[in-house]
């Protein structure tokens, strides 16, 4: 579903993402982990087409997002970490606005409104201006909008920031249901318990390079350690950890 082919991104000589290669099949929930400044958000921006790779390409469902951006974008739902929204629209209006941009039919918009606004407890605030929404409410609105056009790939940057425990549970259930139905999720997070609980597979990026790719069990096996994902993550991303560690850990896709 998502193919990242030897992608590198450089900013004025600084390499933010270095030769990243990933293949995420349909129906998989992939967690992308890494310390601050590792290159997670840059990767996400390249997947969504907001940044152009310096080298390599990104394909969504076989479509190159630089060659055919409109078709690629049609297949993506994106939830940013900082949800800047149109403050002077109401939540309902924002949903309809994005629905129209994606040419979602009216009944589908109404269905999404009823389903997600009630699931996330936004119904009472549906007609209030977004400027009065809390951070968590904005995040919930972003999720409602992202699910609406039934994307094949959901790209999520730090999904749990600002969400209360009930909403977190709701979201986890929604993501599982979405993947069961054949959707693919690319989720970037700092919250290791979330990754441990949800991920079918995970990738760990540090200092612009992918250090690990596989399941949590494979990570334990490769590092020959027991312990929580947090311990393994800290060991893998500590400052002294460089290429020798990467050599014993798979970071390359084996399937084309």
């Amino acid at each position: 579903m998502l193919r990242i082919d030897n992608v590198t991104k450089k900013f004025d000589g600084f390499t933010a993402v270095d030769n990243l290669e990933l293949l995420i099949p349909r129906g998989q929930l992939f967690c992308f982990l890494g310390p601050n400044g590792a290159g997670k958000t840059t990767t996400i921006k390249m997947i969504t087409g907001m940044l152009r790779p310096t080298e390599g390409c990104v394909q969504i469902d076989g479509i190159d997002n630089q060659q055919n951006p409109v078709e690629a974008k049609r297949r993506i739902g994106f939830i940013p970490d900082t949800p800047y929204l149109y403050e002077k629209l109401s939540g309902r209006e924002f949903l309809h606005f994005v629905g129209d941009l994606f040419k979602v039919p009216e009944p589908q918009k109404e269905e999404a409104f009823a389903k997600y606004f009630s699931t996330f407890g936004l119904m009472d605030a549906a007609d209030q201006l977004i400027e009065n929404y809390s951070h968590g409410m904005r995040q919930k609105l972003c999720f409602s909008v992202a699910f609406m056009h039934r994307p094949q790939l959901l790209v999520i940057d730090e999904p749990m920031v600002g969400l209360d425990p009930r909403s977190m549970r709701t979201l986890k259930n929604l993501l599982r249901e979405y993947c069961r139905d054949g959707g693919t999720v690319f989720l970037s997070t700092h919250l290791l318990p979330i990754a441990e609980e949800l991920a079918d597979r995970l990738g760990i990026i540090t200092k612009s390079k992918l250090r690990f790719l596989g399941t949590t069990a494979e990570l334990r096996t490769n590092l020959a350690r027991e312990g929580s994902l947090e311990d393994l993550f800290l060991e893998l991303t500590e400052d002294g950890c460089t290429d020798p560690v990467a050599d014993v850990i798979p970071t390359r896709e084996v399937t084309a």
């Binding site: 969504t48 409109v70 994106f78 800047y84 929204l85 941009l101």
Partner: peptide, 13 residues
């Protein structure tokens, strides 16, 4: 610009 994630990622040129 700040809301580009919603308008810019819509399937249109």
């Amino acid at each position: 610009g700040r809301q580009f994630w919603s308008v810019g990622l819509a399937p249109m040129k």
